[in-house]
């Protein structure tokens, strides 16, 4: 019984070797396939795939809240619509702007100083959004609208809170990569972390828009 595992790669035809993953050109469904790990290290597709999987889980988490929102509103006669403080719209603009600056920074990835500046701006905009959301909470509390006031306000706090928690994770990631970039610039070759964080950030942006539309039009 030999302990060698595989025979040396003989004349196996690997032209149609599937590269699995988030790019999804070919999952390697049948025949000789597989992402072909080994020879050249590890496919970094896994970060992308992992992010999409994580976002699917997060989407289900928020879908549960949203369906609860719709059901609870439909059932009750104690629903008092929460009027959104106008600051919410300003916050939304900040978040939308942060997605744009993030894209800008990804375009200038090879120029590290420009990249850092745009990336820093994104981080600041993200943090400003979070601060803005806390101010919105303070305003509501000032108006006597608490989480326990009525189901509409309960959902307002739960949804904005849950989104805020996820977004602070994003701000942390932005800040962390900023720090990493200072020590060891990413450049356009080594861009996987940048791209993966960008996916998350845009998703959180889109999620916020969806939540806002729900909170505004389905008051």
């Amino acid at each position: 019984m030999a302990t060698t595992i595989a025979p040396p790669p003989v004349e196996i035809e690997l032209e149609d070797l599937g590269r699995g993953g988030g790019g999804i050109p070919n999952l390697g469904w049948e025949g000789p396939g597989g992402p072909g790990e080994g020879a050249e290290g590890i496919s970094d597709n896994r970060y992308r795939t992992g992010m999409w999987a994580a976002l699917a889980g997060i989407l289900m988490f928020f879908t549960a809240f949203i369906s609860a929102y719709v059901v609870r509103k439909g059932l009750s006669n104690d629903w008092i619509p929460t009027s959104l403080p106008s600051l919410v719209w300003f916050n939304t603009l900040l978040l939308l702007a942060s997605s744009l600056t993030l894209e800008r920074s990804r375009h200038v990835l090879s120029d590290n100083s420009r990249f850092s500046r745009w990336w820093l701006l994104t981080t600041v905009l993200g943090a400003a959004f979070l601060v803005g959301q806390v101010v919105v909470w303070r305003q509501l509390i000032g108006d006597g609208v608490y989480i326990s006031s009525n189901p509409s306000s309960s959902f307002f706090y739960v949804l904005t809170g849950a989104h805020g928690v996820h977004l602070s994770g994003g701000v942390f990631a932005l800040g962390f990569l900023l720090f990493r970039n200072r020590q060891n610039p990413f450049g356009s070759v080594n861009r996987t972390p940048i791209d993966v964080v960008a996916i998350y950030w845009h998703f959180m942006d889109g999620l916020w828009i969806s939540l806002l539309l729900l909170l505004f039009f389905w008051r």
Partner: peptide, 14 residues
């Protein structure tokens, strides 16, 4: 999920 999609060896199609 990621391991199954991205980490399969050469020749290991789904």
């Amino acid at each position: 999920i990621v391991t199954t999609i991205d980490m399969r060896a050469e020749g290991m199609s789904m």
